[in-house]
Design a protein around this nucleic acid. Structure first.
Lengths: 369, 369
DNA sequence: GGGGAATTCTAAAACGTTTCAAGAAACAAG
DNA sequence: CTTGTTTCTTGAAACGTTTTAGAATTCCCC
C-alpha cells in the first residue's frame, strides 16, 4: 500500500489498480538484480545461469507470483503450445471420447487442447478455423462438419505451415493426414449379421450422404446385400442427419412402408435411439418385430431398452492416434500424408434377433393401431 | 514463383518458404501505399479513413489473404476475445449441455470459447487455470473439479482483473459470481416422491462429500426423511464419486444390506446407470424390487431400461446464464458478486414405483407382466 | 599472475499489432 | 488568399517476451 503510494503519488484509483497488475519479467529482473535476458534463460533453461543468480531469480518469481505472458511468448516465438480441435457437435456422445483420446496424448507432451464446437455449421467452423489460425497454434485436429470447407480454408497462405489432421471424417478434397475408421466394413458386418439371422428386408438410415462416413456406411450395407443377391429397395435407404430426431422421423417413414423392413441399420447410435423411440411409439417390439443395429457403441448402449447392438468405433484411440500423428508433424516429420484407418467391431446386444417367421396380418394390425 | 525469386535473389530454401508465410500489416500497408497505422484503422474501424485509401487497403487485404495475428493483437491490447472454460469431465454427458449454453451465448457476442477438460484432477485444473490466464483471456468459466483450488489460484495477482464465474458447483471458499442449482430441493423432491409412494427404506449414493453439490443433495434427502420422522440409517448413505463405476459398487454394497433399501436416490445419472447395472447383476427388478431416482435428466434417461426418473437440471440455461453474467463482468459491471440459483424439476419415468411390501396381489401381477 | 578458453551474463533488436501525439490535407469562413 | 477548424494520415512508442552477438566474468593451466 505504502509502496503503491510511492510509486503513484497522484494515487488515483486507476493507478492503484496497477499494483494489482500482472508482474512481468522486467520486475523479476529488477528484484533479482539481473538482466531481463537472464530471467528468460532461467525460465526457459536456454543457457547456463550461475547458482546465486538463478536462485535470486527463482525467489523473485515465486515471491512476486510471476506468470509469463504466454501471449507475449507465443507472439515472439510465433508459435504457441496450444493445439486446436474443432468438432461438429459436442452433444453427440461419441465425440467427447475422441476428445479425451486427443487430450490425453497431447497433455502428456505438454501441449494444451483448445476445443471448439462447430455446431455442425460450416460457417462457424470456418470462423473458428481462421481465428485459431490467428493464434498461431502448434497444430489443429478437425472433425469436419457436414459441408466442411476445411480443404479450401486451410489452403490459405495464413495457414502456411500449420499441421492439420482430419479426424473421423474426410473433408471433401482433403489430401493431408487423416485418421478414420473402416466405416464400410462396419456396416457390412452389421448387415451380414442381420442376414445370417434370416432377415431379408433390411433398411438403413444413413447420415448426410455428402459426408464420406455416411457414404461408406451405406456402401457396406449395399455390399452385404449384393453379396447375397438381395435387391436393394430404394425406399429402404433413408438419408438422415446423424441425430436422434432424424432417426425418429426416418424410422417412422420406414415402418409405415409395406412391406415393412424387419431390421434397420442406423447411421449412428443417436439415430438408433430415434429409431427406438419410433418403435415404441408404434408399439413395435425390438427385436421381435424389428431388429436394430447402431454405430458408435456409445456407453449408454448397454443401458437402453433393449440394449443396443452397435458397431464399435475405437473413439479414444482414434483421438490418441490423431494426436500422435499431429505431434510427429509438429516435430517436423516430412513423411507423405498418412491415412490411418482403424477397425470396427460389432458389439452384439439385445436389439437384434431373428425375424418373426410370419410377419404379416398379425403384426400389420399392430402397426395400424 | 518468379516473384519469389525476385524478392529473394539468393533464393535459398528458407527464403523461398517466406513467400508462403503469414502476411502482416506491413505488407498490406506497402501494397496499399498507406501507413501501417492506417491499415489498423481500417481493420478495426478505429478512425475515419477516406474512401480511396480504405478501398486500397481492403483490396490488399483480400488479395494477399491477410489474417491479423490475434496473438500480436491480444498481446498489444493485453486482452483477447477468448473465454476459457474448464470442466471436470467431458465424458459426463451433463457437461456438454452446459458447454453449449455457454458457447451459444458467447458466440453471439463475438467471444470464442476455449474448452479445457480438467479430468477431475485438481492439479490439471490448476495447470489449465494458470496457462489460460497466461493467454489474457477475456474471462473464465469454471466448473470446479473435486478438490478444486480455484479460489486460491485465482487469488494470485496474475489473475488481477480476470472475471471468473463458478458454475454448477461452488469451489470451497469461493466468493465471486456463481450459477448453481437448487441441489437440496432436487433430492428433497425426489425423496419425498419416494416417501409418498410408500417407501420407508430409502438409500442414497452421494457424490464426493467435500463437493458442495453432493453435500446439498444429501441434505435434501435428509430433510425429506426428517420431515416424516424416519430415522437415518448411516449405512444407507454411501459416498460415491459421481461416476458410473462408483454407482455400481455402492449399489452392490447397499443391496447386500439387510434390510435392503427399497429405493435408491443416486447422486447423478451416471451413478444411477451404475445402480441399474448392479440391479441387473443381482437379478433385482427395477422398480418392482428397488426404485431408483437419478439427478441430471440426461437425454439418455428416456431410453434406459427402465426409463430413469431423474431430477432435471437446466444445464443449457445454466451455461447461458453463466455466460451472460460473465459478459456483464467483462463489460465492467461492478455489481457485488451474484449467486444465481436455478430450479430443478423432478421428471418421473419408469424407474420408480411403490415398494413391493405394500403391494396387494393385483399390482404385483401388474409388475410381473 | 597471465593468457586463452569456457562460461555466464547483458544489451538490444525483433516479433505484429494498437494507439497517440502531432503533422498534413481538406474544408469552411472571412 | 488567409486563417481556423475539422478530418485524415502518419510515425513512433509500446506491449512482454525470446534470442543473438558480444562483453564480462570465471576457470584452468602454465
Amino acid at each position: 500500500m505504502l509502496e503503491a503510494l510511492r510509486l503513484f503519488p497522484d494515487g488515483c484509483a486507476d493507478e492503484m489498480k496497477k499494483t494489482l497488475q500482472k508482474v512481468t519479467m522486467r520486475q523479476i529482473a529488477a528484484k533479482a538484480a539481473v538482466s531481463i535476458g537472464t530471467v528468460s534463460h532461467v525460465v526457459n533453461n536456454t543457457a547456463g545461469v550461475r547458482e546465486p543468480a538463478r536462485r535470486r531469480v527463482l525467489e523473485a518469481i515465486s515471491s512476486l507470483g510471476y506468470q509469463p505472458s504466454l501471449l507475449a511468448r507465443g507472439f515472439r516465438r510465433n508459435k504457441t503450445t496450444i493445439v486446436g480441435m474443432i468438432i461438429p457437435d459436442i452433444l453427440n456422445p461419441f465425440f467427447p471420447q475422441v476428445v479425451r483420446g486427443v487430450e490425453d496424448a497431447l497433455y502428456k507432451n505438454a501441449y494444451r487442447l483448445m476445443l471448439c464446437n462447430a455446431d455442425n455449421d460450416d460457417k462457424k467452423e470456418q470462423v473458428y478455423l481462421n481465428e485459431l489460425c490467428g493464434y498461431r497454434l502448434a497444430g489443429l485436429i478437425v472433425i469436419p462438419s457436414v459441408d466442411s470447407h476445411l480443404t479450401a480454408t486451410v489452403g490459405n497462405s495464413s495457414f502456411a505451415d500449420l499441421p492439420v489432421i482430419c479426424l473421423d471424417r474426410h473433408a471433401p478434397g482433403w489430401k493431408g493426414d487423416s485418421v478414420t475408421v473402416e466405416n464400410a466394413e462396419g456396416t457390412y458386418q452389421a448387415t451380414r449379421h442381420l442376414l445370417q439371422l434370416g432377415h431379408r428386408s433390411i433398411a438403413i438410415i444413413t447420415g448426410p450422404l455428402h459426408v464420406n462416413n455416411a457414404i461408406e456406411r451405406l456402401n457396406g450395407y449395399r455390399r452385404a446385400l449384393r453379396e447375397v443377391s438381395i435387391p436393394i429397395v430404394p425406399e429402404y435407404i433413408q438419408e438422415g442427419r446423424f441425430d436422434r430426431l432424424s432417426g425418429y422421423e426416418k424410422a417412422l417413414t420406414l415402418l409405415r412402408l409395406s412391406p415393412c423392413p424387419t431390421a434397420i441399420v442406423a447411421g449412428n447410435d443417436l439415430v438408433a435411439l430415434g429409431v427406438l423411440a419410433a418403435l415404441q411409439e408404434l408399439a413395435l417390439r425390438c427385436p421381435a418385430d424389428v431388429s436394430l443395429i447402431g454405430f458408435d457403441d456409445l456407453e449408454l448402449d448397454a443401458f437402453t431398452n433393449p440394449s443396443l447392438t452397435s458397431v464399435a468405433q475405437p473413439g479414444y484411440h482414434m483421438g490418441a492416434r490423431a494426436a500422435s500423428l499431429l505431434l510427429d508433424r509438429i516435430n517436423g516429420t516430412d513423411a507423405p500424408a498418412q491415412h490411418v484407418v482403424m477397425q470396427t467391431l460389432l458389439k452384439i446386444r439385445g436389439s437384434v434377433g431373428p425375424p418373426l417367421a410370419t410377419f404379416d396380418a398379425k403384426s400389420k394390425n399392430k402397426l395400424r393401431r
